[in-house]
Amino acid sequence: MKEKGKIKLGISIGDFNGIGCEVALKTFQDPRMLDFCTPIIFASNKLISQQKSDLELNISFNGINNASQAVDGKINVVNVWKEAPQLEYGKATDQGGEYAIKSLRAAVAALKSNALDVLVTAPINKNNIQAEDFKFPGHTDFLAQELNGESLMFMVADTLRVGLLTDHIAVKDVAQAITPKLIYEKVATMEKSLKMDFGIRRPKIALLGINPHSGDNGTIGEEDEKILKPAIQELFDQGTLVYGPYSADSFFGSNTHSSFDAILAAYHDQGLIPFKTLSFGKGVNYTAGLEKIRTSPDHGTAYEIAGKGEADESSFKEAVFTAIKVFKNREEYIKLNKNPLQKQKVKRAS
C-alpha cells in the first residue's frame, strides 16, 4: 500500500518528432494536475527545453538523474541521455525510433524497480522502433514480455470498455489465431481487470463474432459456430457472465454495448473503429492483466501537426487520470481481499 507522497507517474516520450512530448507537457502545464501525481518524464533536459521553446509552453521542470530523486509538485525530467538528437518534427526518422526505445526501456526499468507507481506511454511509430534488440509490433507486446501477466489491449472511456482477442496481427491471420485457449485467457484477464482495476463485482462481458453476422449459423464461415459459441457456453457454465457472439455491424449502433461492462472484439479494427468513433479524444489504451499499470492516449504520433502547437492533450490527460484511478482501485481491491471482513459493513444496534 502506498502511504507517503503522491503517486509517481512515469512518462515515456514516444517519437519525439511526433506530438508525444507536446501532449505530456501541455497536460502538466496546468498546475492543478500536480495535485494528483508527480510526473517523471524519461528523456533529457536538452530535449524537453527545446520542445518547450519550439512549442512556446509556459512550464518549468526539475532535471534529475533517476526517478528516486523526483520532487512532488514539479515536472521531473530524468536525463536518460546527455546528447542532443536532431528534432525533425513530422518525420519518421531512425533517431526518433532509437530514442523512443531508450525512453521506454528506462521508464519500464524504473517501473519494475518500484521507483514508479504507474506508466503513461506517449505514441511511438511502429516502424522506426524496429531494431535488433526491439522487434515488437507495439508497446503492448513489449510490456507483456517485461511485466508479468497475461496482457490484454483494453480501450476504456468512462463506461465504454473494449478489449481485443487479437491486436496487431494481419486480418488474414485473425481466424486462425483465435482458439478456445485464447478466448479463455482473454476473458479471464478481462474479468479480473474489471473486478480489480475498475471495481465491478460481477462484470458482464460481450464477445463479438469473427465473421459477418457471426457466421449466420455457419453460412458465412464456421469459426463462430465451432470456436466462439462452445467457448462462450463453457465459460458461462463455469460462472462467468459472458455472452455472444454478437454481430459486430449493429452491436454499437443499436446501443447494445451499454448493457455490458466490457466488450471483447475479435480483431483490432472491429473493436477500435467503433471505440474511437464514440470516444475519440477521451479514450485511453490500457494494458490490462499485467503486474504494473500502463496507459496511453488513444491516438498516434500525429506527424501532420507535430511541432505546430496544435495537439490536443485531452486523451493524454485521460490516460493520466485512468492510471491513477486504476492504481487506487487495485490498492483498495488488495486491501479488501487481504482483509475480507472489511467487505461486510455491519450496522450495530444502538
Rank of each mutant, 00 (worst) to 15 (best):
M1E: 14
E3G: 06
I11K: 00
I19A: 09
A24Y: 06
F42V: 14
A43G: 15
S49K: 15
Q51C: 11
E56F: 06
A70C: 10
A84H: 03
P85A: 05
L87R: 08
L87T: 08
L104D: 07
A107K: 02
N114P: 04
A115F: 06
L116D: 14
P123N: 11
N127R: 13
E132I: 13
G138Y: 07
G138T: 08
D141C: 02
N148H: 12
V156T: 13
V162W: 01
L164N: 09
L164Q: 10
A170L: 04
K181G: 05
S193K: 00
L194T: 14
I200A: 12
R201F: 06
A206Y: 05
G209E: 10
I210P: 04
I220W: 02
D224E: 00
D224N: 01
I227G: 00
A231N: 07
F252N: 15
F252H: 14
S254L: 08
N255F: 07
L272K: 00
T277Q: 07
T277R: 11
L278C: 03
S279D: 09
G281E: 14
G281H: 11
G281S: 13
K282H: 10
E291P: 02
K292P: 09
I293F: 03
P297R: 06
D298A: 12
T301L: 11
A302V: 00
Y303R: 01
Y303Q: 00
G307H: 08
S314Y: 05
F327A: 02
I334P: 00
P340Q: 08
Q344V: 13
V346G: 05
K347G: 09
A349I: 15
